[in-house]
Amino acid sequence: MNAHPTPKSRALRYSLAALSAALLVACAVPPASTASARADSAALDAAISGPQRADKARARDDYRHPKETLTFFDIAPSQSVLEIAPGGGWYTDILAPYLRDHGKLFEAQYDSPNAGLAAEEQSGRASFAHRLAAAPAVYGNVTIGTLRDGRFSGFPADGSVDRVLTFRNIHNWIKDGQIDANLRAFYAALKPGGILGVEEHRAAPGTSLQQIIDSGYVTEAYVIEHARAAGFELAGESEVNANPRDTKNYPHGVWSLPPTYEGGDLDRARYAAIGESDRMTLRFVKPAH
């Protein structure tokens, strides 16, 4: 004959049942941070696969790894992001829809002091602005400004930005003598703890400054040295955009490779097989103190 459970044993049984149920719920519902990360990842996937991106742009994904690169730079949809010298808008087409609802995207068109490029740059800026204005549903939360002589105009850049991003631009600033002024401007634009994300064609260690200017390939040591001089700390390095097939010794420098093919049809198949350049991907932080 079974003994009747005592009030104490019944209370213990109920407590154990409640604990088991709580554990089951905890296992079934992911932590808020995990759920948020999954939602951010899905939103980034949607931006990368969105119809605003042309097929020609998508063809570069295998070389530029946009999801892995932006994830390495710790981009989130609620941030304010400043992209430098967007060119035709390859990354803009991803960042704009990703940040549209909860964040903010600033685009700083680089105004080179090279007078010979003035007409070309003006045409490119006008085309970029027209394309963004024609699709407000995608680009309605984008503000276009200018970077000239290490100073921004067109939007506030005084310690209020979460991320500054630059893709394959540093070699131009070295040639123009603007690299240090620009890096100081990026530092000033960022919040304490903000991140500067750099992707750049990577030269072999020991490459001279003149070779850097002529070839478009920059040494990692050069970038790190000048970023540190501007106040940044190196916070991470990624090989996501590395290309070991790139020998970096071509008649037209990095511009021999796709997508530029500056040599025309000469050795085009060889350069196509190499693909886009070997690139460093570096993450710098503005110290929080």
Rank of each mutant, 00 (worst) to 15 (best):
A134M: 06
I94P: 08
S78H: 13
L147F: 00
T92Q: 05
E121V: 12
G103T: 06
N114I: 13
S123Y: 09
G124T: 09
V161H: 12
A85P: 07
E120I: 14
L147V: 05
Q79W: 00
P136H: 06
N169G: 10
A137S: 13
E83H: 10
N141M: 02
A85F: 06
V81I: 07
S123Q: 13
R168H: 07
I94K: 08
Q109N: 13
L147S: 03
F167E: 02
A135Y: 06
Q122S: 13
S153H: 04
F167S: 13
I75P: 12
A134Y: 07
T146S: 13
H102K: 14
A126K: 15
G89V: 00
G159V: 07
A133T: 11
L82W: 00
W90A: 12
G145N: 11
F106T: 00
A96Y: 00
S78D: 13
F106A: 04
P156S: 04
Y91E: 08
R100E: 06
V142C: 09
F128E: 07
A137L: 10
F152Y: 09
V81R: 11
N114K: 14
V138S: 10
P86V: 13
E120G: 14
H102Y: 01
D158K: 14
F106G: 03
L99A: 09
G150R: 04
Q122I: 07
N114Y: 10
A137Y: 04
S112I: 01
G116E: 06
G154W: 05
S127Y: 03
Y98N: 12
E121S: 13
D162I: 05
R125F: 08
T92D: 02
R168Y: 02
P97E: 04
G103K: 11
R125W: 11
L117G: 12
T146G: 10
E83W: 00
R131N: 14
Q109Y: 01
W90M: 01
P86W: 01
S78C: 11
A157R: 03
H102V: 00
T92V: 00
S78M: 09
P86F: 04
D162Y: 01
T143Y: 02
Y98I: 14
L132Q: 13
E107T: 15
R131G: 10
S153Y: 00
P77T: 04
I75E: 00
G140F: 14
G140H: 06
A118Q: 15
A108Y: 00
L147G: 05
G87M: 05
V161L: 11
L99G: 02
E120L: 15
N141Q: 01
I84C: 01
A118C: 01
H102N: 10
F106L: 03
G103C: 07
I144H: 08
V161P: 05
I94G: 09
L82F: 00
